[in-house]
Amino acid sequence: MSKFTELKTISCTICGSSFTKKSNLNSHMRIHSGEKPFSCEVCEASFSRKQHFMTHMLIHTGDKPFSCEICQTSFAAKATLISHLRTHTGEKPFRCEICESSFTQKSNLTKHIRVHTGEAPFSCEICSSSFSEKSNLTKHIQRHTGEKRLPCEICGSLFSDKSNLTNHMRIHTGEKPFCCEICESAFAQKSSLKRHMRIHTADEAFSCEICGSSFTEKSNLTKHVRIHTGEKPFSCDVCGSSFLRKQHFTIHMRIHTGEKPFSCEICNFAFSAKSRLKKHMCKHTGEKQFFCKTCRSEFTTEKNLKEHMKKHTDHKAC
């Protein structure tokens, strides 16, 4: 018999995946059963695989045995070091076969593929909303529970997860760690940098089938389509007003609640919308945001610009 006879495989009775070892099949079955037999005695986190449990334990011991030879950053897991090294080399070995986008980690490719397939495997048991990423489901559930455990030490604002707190802290520190390599613009959030980069790449992947308008983000296309359909999904339970965008609905609700969360630091005047505070600040700073396209005159308020524009229209009428 040949030394390289075909290996006998064992198949999963639920999804059909095949394995050469029973131990691998047993580990795989925990995906379906949800079983997590490896528990941390320190924080009670549980895991389906021993390898993941061992990596987790390094969080508590503080042991980071894997170091980057380029920047000396240390990591608890070798896999994390390998992923980190790609930030230095620029290597993106995981490529999407549909749009050819490339990624440094396989998990990011998996998440990206769901943009094309529309798959949203993580469902909320309370309202049945579905999400493509588990982290988004976790954030969503906190909206139901109202749980916010992480406070800002400067202003006392509470946040449901560490990433939101980190982003918020940049408001106080002014830190903008995400820089554009083309024009050197800097941003507080990575998502803002990604949106900005599309200005340089002219990447407008989402097109309106009705009028042909193109958008760099799917969410902006969704909002745009409502102009054609007339859909106003955000309704006020108090007065019945409906809105195209959630942002406009949120601002409207403050009419009923009286909430004015945006305050002027100079005169303490408060506003229900950030845009109104911005306009108000121009009175203090003298900044002129509005300009006439006809004669290039500048104005601090839109109202003053409109009054000015009448001069041009009246002149044409004569």
Rank of each mutant, 00 (worst) to 15 (best):
A202C: 07
I266V: 15
G230C: 09
T87E: 06
H280R: 09
S132I: 00
L277F: 15
T73C: 03
E147G: 01
T173I: 02
F53P: 11
T222L: 05
H200V: 02
S130D: 06
M29E: 13
H315S: 11
K316H: 15
H256C: 02
R30Q: 09
C12S: 08
C152A: 10
G118Q: 07
E175G: 06
R198Q: 08
R95M: 04
C267H: 08
E217K: 03
G34A: 12
S272V: 07
G258L: 05
I31K: 04
M309D: 10
H88Y: 11
T117W: 15
T313G: 07
G146C: 01
P121Y: 15
I251A: 15
G286S: 11
G156W: 12
F262N: 05
E181V: 03
C208W: 12
T250N: 14
S27M: 02
S107E: 12
H280P: 09
H256P: 00
Q189F: 06
S17D: 13
K279M: 15
S191D: 11
T301S: 15
A77I: 01
C96R: 04
V238E: 04
K139L: 01
H60N: 08
I70M: 02
H60F: 09
T13V: 08
N220I: 00
A77W: 04
L305C: 08
P261N: 02
S157R: 02
C68L: 03
R296I: 02
G286E: 12
I255F: 15
A120Q: 15
L165N: 07
S272W: 13
E204V: 02
H196D: 06
K223W: 03
S242L: 00
Q105N: 13
E204P: 00
T13L: 04
H56S: 04
L58G: 08
M29V: 07
R245Q: 11
L81M: 06
K111I: 12
I154Y: 08
F4T: 03
T104Y: 10
S46L: 07
E217D: 08
E119W: 13
S129C: 04
F215K: 02
C236I: 03
S39E: 13
S18C: 10
K176F: 10
R198F: 02
I126V: 14
S157W: 00
E41W: 04
S23R: 09
S101D: 12
